[in-house]
Amino acid sequence: MSNEIAARTSIGTVQLRVSQLQQSLEFYQSVVGLRLLSQDRTSAELGVPDSERPLLRLIEIANAVPRPRRSGAGLYHAALLLPDRRSLGLALRNLIASGIHVGQSDHLVSEALYISDPDNNGIEIYRDRPRHEWQWDANGHVRMAVDPIDWDGLLAEAGDAPWNGLPAGTTVGHIHLHVTELPTTEHFYVDVLGFNLVAHMADSAMFISAGGYHHHIGLNVWAGVGATLTPDTAPGLDYFEIALPDEEAQMAVFARLQAASVPLRTNQGTVIVHDPSGIQIHIVVRGSA
């Protein structure tokens, strides 16, 4: 049995804790451009046209106080991958019109915009360059950078086209996490779960993927080595899904977790584990949407 996670692995739904559901819904619909799929008194699911699969699920927690960014292990950002550059240009134009602070970076493999929601949960909105343009070194590591983005070129792509929110085909392309420290984190995600290590950023961050993607998960210690998990009484990441293509792939991961004596539980076909920082992960089989 291969110890490598299935090539068609992806990131599924990301569940975030928020302090005020209605405030967050306004932000994620009008600023980010997601559409409301369902809502009850304390939770809501958000997605894009032509799919009923939620990209984000928001859970309101009582008496929550937003925390500064980089204040504990947990979410650095959840990254929404758009299908083309024109869509990213339209998103940029809308973000500028909203008045929100927008960070930006050209990573060579992608062009990315960075914002924070009202609770300081980080969100990246990005588009990938074609895979044939990505460069890999002799060690199998992808070349990435943090160059300035072509702001004017993106806006020119958008032109005068109307903005109607994020388009069909948008997915959660990756998730980036603050973790407590890197060696045990690498062992868990690479040796046990079976992701491939594809990039390092000095001794402070690493990037892992399946199937030759530039990264499905980023892992950093920018909140400080030894940072404790953001408590579940505060806004932040509740859990994220690792979506596998079939039950065989899920069972292979399940077997490796058991062999490594990683505590886990199952719930209606979902394998629930925590990484070495305490971050909750749901390992699911992705169905049709």
Rank of each mutant, 00 (worst) to 15 (best):
A78F: 09
I242S: 00
P49I: 12
T228K: 10
A138F: 14
V48E: 03
G72F: 05
V221F: 11
E52N: 02
Q23V: 12
I149D: 04
L237D: 01
D232N: 11
I281T: 08
T184R: 13
P276G: 08
V192L: 02
G165S: 11
P263Q: 07
A158T: 08
A91S: 15
L56G: 06
V190L: 13
H77P: 14
N63Y: 03
L34F: 06
P231F: 14
V285L: 04
R17N: 10
A259N: 06
D150T: 01
G165H: 13
T233S: 12
E186A: 08
A289Q: 12
Y239F: 15
I96D: 01
D232Q: 10
L177V: 00
G89S: 10
R256P: 07
F207M: 00
N121C: 09
R8L: 01
D160G: 09
I272S: 00
R86I: 03
I281P: 03
A112V: 10
Y189G: 04
A78T: 10
N120C: 07
F207D: 05
W163G: 03
S110I: 13
S261R: 13
Q20A: 11
I115G: 01
I123N: 10
R129N: 13
L257P: 05
A161L: 11
A145L: 15
Q15Y: 00
E241H: 00
R57W: 10
L36E: 10
V65A: 11
V32M: 07
S43L: 07
Q104M: 12
H101S: 15
R35Y: 10
Q15T: 13
R131T: 14
P68Q: 12
G236T: 07
P276F: 00
E45S: 07
V221L: 03
P49D: 10
V284W: 02
I5D: 05
H282T: 05
P162W: 12
W134A: 01
D152C: 01
E186D: 15
G153W: 13
G33N: 03
V102R: 04
L177C: 07
A260Q: 12
A234F: 08
F254G: 11
S209W: 01
P235C: 03
W222F: 10
R93F: 07
Q23D: 03
G140R: 13
H176W: 15
H101T: 15
L21C: 00
E181P: 15
D232F: 07
A205L: 11
T233L: 14
A255L: 05
A234S: 13
S98P: 09
G89D: 08
D119G: 05
P68H: 03
D50I: 11
P235F: 00
D160I: 09
I115W: 02
I123R: 05
G269H: 06
R8F: 01
A243G: 06
S10P: 12
